[in-house]
């Protein structure tokens, strides 16, 4: 299989989760984030993980995409875990060397951070797999619309979000092509020495920045040539209305999330 990157990708199938209004999904993601940071109970994490699995399978997504969604954060998690373990002071110390201490509390905190981030990425990936960029933009614009009273450019902000989402797969594809193009000229992009590795990535990053800025400039010109003048006075082709199903999902999920906080 030639390409496996799925970040920012919408998965076009019919499912119960796909049908739920994106505004509800965004609000529930915010709630689940709050709950994940309010609890440090491992039973609550297990409960939330089981809930995540239920939502994932209700989304009619292939099981392999659970791993694909979480894979990009593995390096960050690895670093975060070791920093927590090595620098967290605790009462039950297993190993102490110079400024480093490995304690029971450090290990627990490290695991808590890893589980929190994995679940966060998991829930957020369901949002992006089951909502099209247009649905997400409309949802963000709708949720932020009270800020229009303060004359904040809500429509423009929503548009910026959509464009960012829209460009993620394109930039990844360009990066993959650039890696191949530079390898075809004998570039070695992987070095054991961190300084050499940094220098070796220049043939990748410089052209990627150049093309990203060029694409942004072209897109700006193309939008201006099609008379884009900001969000003022713009209407929507399709007005999205919340349905009974959306209210029920919102209420049900909120209850499920609150129960996670009550687990002793």
């Amino acid at each position: 299989m030639a390409s496996t990157s799925v970040i920012g990708t919408y998965y076009p199938v019919q499912s119960f989760v796909h049908k739920i209004d994106a505004r509800i999904k965004i609000l529930l993601i915010v709630f689940s984030t709050v709950v994940l940071f309010l609890t440090d109970n491992f039973f609550a994490f297990l409960y939330l993980f089981l809930f995540y699995l239920v939502v994932f399978f209700l989304s009619n997504l292939p099981a392999s995409w659970i791993y694909k969604a979480m894979r990009p954060v593995f390096t960050i998690l690895f670093i975060a875990f070791f920093f927590q373990i090595l620098f967290t002071p605790g009462a039950d110390i297993y190993v102490k060397w110079s400024i480093f201490t490995i304690s029971k509390q450090g290990i627990i905190l490290g695991l808590t951070v890893v589980i929190r981030i994995l679940l966060l990425v998991g829930f957020a990936s369901i949002l992006s797999y089951t909502s099209t960029p247009i649905e997400l933009t409309d949802a963000i614009e709708s949720l932020l619309s009270p800020l229009k009273i303060l004359r904040l450019p809500v429509s423009e902000f929503a548009l910026v979000m959509t464009i960012a989402l829209r460009f993620v797969p394109q930039i990844l594809t360009e990066a993959q092509d650039l890696v191949k193009a530079q390898k075809a000229r004998g570039a070695t992009l992987e070095h054991r020495n961190i300084f050499k590795r940094g220098k070796a990535l220049l043939p990748l990053f410089i052209p990627l920045f150049v093309s990203t800025y060029r694409n942004a400039e072209d897109l700006g010109k193309a939008m201006e040539s099609r008379a884009y003048h900001g969000g003022k006075g713009r209407t929507h082709y399709k007005e999205r209305k919340l349905m009974n199903r959306d209210y029920l999902v919102f209420a049900g999920t909120t209850v499920i999330l609150v129960i996670a906080l009550l687990i002793p």
């Binding site: 075809a184 000229r185 220049l202």
Partner: peptide, 17 residues
């Protein structure tokens, strides 16, 4: 492989750095 066979990409100007 590049020592034996070279590949020229479409739009090679995009690889300049």
């Amino acid at each position: 492989v590049y020592k034996h066979v070279s590949f020229l990409f479409q739009k090679p100007e995009a690889q300049l750095f």
